[in-house]
Nucleic acid binder design. Structure first.
Length: 507
RNA sequence: GGCCCUGUCGUCUAGUUUGGUUAGGACGGCGCACUUUCAAUGCGCUAACAUAGGUUCAAAUCCUAUCAGGGCCGCCA
């Protein structure tokens, strides 16, 4: 018997991939690799009404960007293919039927309207959400309440029906969650969930159990919002006779909105100005694009590192981990139980850390597109030097353009007021004579430039602090950037002279 | 409303199993230093055991109750 760890991420391809989803993927990946196991991507596309064009490819792209590549997936295949539930449709009926035969499930013929009527009629202040359960099932139209002949008749007439689980009465269903410990449920309070829909597709409840069994999943991670339906799944594993093969469950804490409380949603990101999806998601119906972490200028390594620490830590205080380190150190019992509010400031801090620790030549291809997008003419080796000079003041990739543009193009907007605040004739004369002597500088290199600059300074009886800021503003356009003589060296003698002359004429 | 989950600085968290810490770290904020601007860096400050009762010489840690927040209650996942 093989004990190989097998986990799966099972998204429904209905839109952008949420932060929480990526974290679930990450924990799956880390757990699998830590234990030398396998990580499976399974697409749960059993709801035909929610089918969204391109959503599956988008998920695959996100996984690739994050570097969390599954061992088995729809595109890659594997020994348990197909990995798309819509392509496994034919498998589920048999199991649903088995459950009916064993008396653990039943046919229900109620129409949508009838269900709605039942809920409306039974709704009271003390019971705002009436369920289809052991209390109400006898009043509904199903193979438990109807005479056997009528059921046969309805089936023969091809009346649409669903198959529901028959929740037992007076039982306590328990299991041990890997991060929460013992959890108990009273079966009287759980409803008869639909297992097989009228269109022949399974619901999540049936599909997750059947596929986890068929795919030999050993550990199942999912969000905490699934906890209430756990007893259904537990019972299904038991009724199908697979109890000994049931995976160990771990219900992950939720990622909460930064302000107030509640689950973090795409809307919160729009409202507060930060991404929630991993990558840009363009809704094919509305054509609206929601910004992703990737396009916002995050490094995938930073994004993944940040997510790993949102609910987990290794107990040492270390915060920066490579993916390999995470694989090595991750353990499910150090996952926090409580939900974590997402902190965008901290997320940016991680990215800043990663930019500092990434070599300039690795940064080059990541930064380059942002310059191209702004149609700034670039030379690779020059850009790489610039990157080295400005990286410490860049938090997100687009910051490089903001911080480095003046290395490539003459600034259009000059912060004149900053110069004018302390401007006088003496300073003008200094700049003019320095300009005139520029050709006297032996090699156009920052130490030589600075030396020459200091010499002229002495002749004019000025202090360095008097003219350095004006010089900076003339070359850069504003009060920012690395050492001013290095900037002069980089942009060249002619451009330096040009910028100074230009600004001088405006003063 | 019912059920389930959770509760340590503003935020992420260490510490809870095996009671004894000035309750530690990080982000943020504030201040200082450095400085040629912006950053970066270094240093410092800020700030928490949800509440109430127990048990105990001693409780963040064990027990009880309360409170608060969250999740779920679809032929969605």
């Amino acid at each position: 018997m093989s004990n190989k760890v097998r986990v799966r991420f099972a998204p429904s391809p209905t839109g952008g991939l949420h932060l929480g989803g990526v974290r679930t993927i990450l924990y799956n990946y880390l757990f699998a690799h830590h234990h030398g196991g396998e990580f499976v991507l399974r697409i749960e596309d059993t709801d035909q009404n929610r089918y969204v064009e391109g959503a599956e490819q988008y998920i695959v792209d996100c996984l690739k960007w994050c570097g969390l590549i599954p061992d088995e997936s729809p595109e890659k295949g594997g020994p348990y293919a197909p990995y798309r539930q819509s392509e496994r449709k034919h498998l589920y009926y048999e199991y649903a039927q088995k459950l009916v035969d064993a008396g653990h499930a039943y046919y229900a013929f109620d129409t949508t309207n009838e269900l709605e009527n039942m809920r409306n009629q039974l709704r009271t202040d003390t019971n705002p959400n009436p369920q289809y359960d052991s209390n109400t099932r006898q009043q509904m139209r199903n193979s438990l309440s109807l005479p056997a002949e009528e059921v046969v008749d309805l089936l023969e007439k091809k009346t649409p029906y669903v198959i529901r689980i028959k929740m037992p009465q007076n039982q306590t269903v328990s299991f041990t969650d890997m991060i929460r410990g013992e959890i108990h449920f009273d079966t009287n309070l759980v409803d008869d969930k639909v297992l097989l829909k009228a269109d022949g597709m399974p619901t999540y409840h049936l599909a997750v159990v059947v596929d986890d069994y068929l795919m030999k999943i050993t550990h199942a991670f999912r969000g905490e919002e699934w906890l209430p339906s756990a007893p259904v799944h537990l019972l299904l594993w038991e009724y199908l006779g697979w109890k000994d093969n049931m995976p160990q469950w771990a219900h992950l804490p939720l990622i909460l909105k930064p302000d107030g409380n509640g689950k973090l949603s795409k809307r919160d990101g729009d409202r507060l100005g930060f991404p929630v999806f991993a990558m840009d998601w363009k809704d094919p119906k509305t054509n609206d694009t929601t910004t992703g972490f990737k396009e916002r200028g995050f490094l995938p390594e930073a994004f993944v590192n940040m997510l790993a620490l949102l609910g987990w830590n290794d107990g040492t205080g270390q915060e920066i981990f490579s993916l390999d380190e995470l694989v090595q150190k991750f353990s499910i019992d150090r996952v926090h139980k409580g939900g974590a509010k997402f902190d965008y400031e901290k997320a940016k801090w991680f990215n800043h850390q990663y930019i500092q620790h990434t070599a300039d030549d690795k940064l080059l291809p990541l930064v380059k597109p942002y310059f191209e997008k702004e149609q700034i003419p670039i030379d690779d080796s020059y850009l790489q030097k610039v990157i080295g000079l400005i990286k410490e003041r860049c938090t997100l990739l687009p910051d490089f353009v903001q911080q480095g543009r003046f290395f490539f193009v003459t600034p259009q907007h000059i912060d004149l007021p900053s110069i004018q605040a302390k401007w006088d004739e003496k300073k003008r004369q200094f700049f003019e004579s320095w300009l005139a002597g520029l050709d006297g500088i032996g090699s156009w290199e920052h130490t030589a430039i600075e030396q020459h600059f200091n010499g002229v300074l002495d002749q004019h009886g000025l202090k360095k602090g008097d003219v350095l800021l004006p010089l900076r503003v003339m070359l850069v356009g504003g009060k920012f950037g690395p050492g001013v003589f290095i900037i002069a060296e980089m942009i060249g003698k002619a451009e330096t002279a040009l910028r100074i002359t230009n600004v001088l004429s405006q003063l």
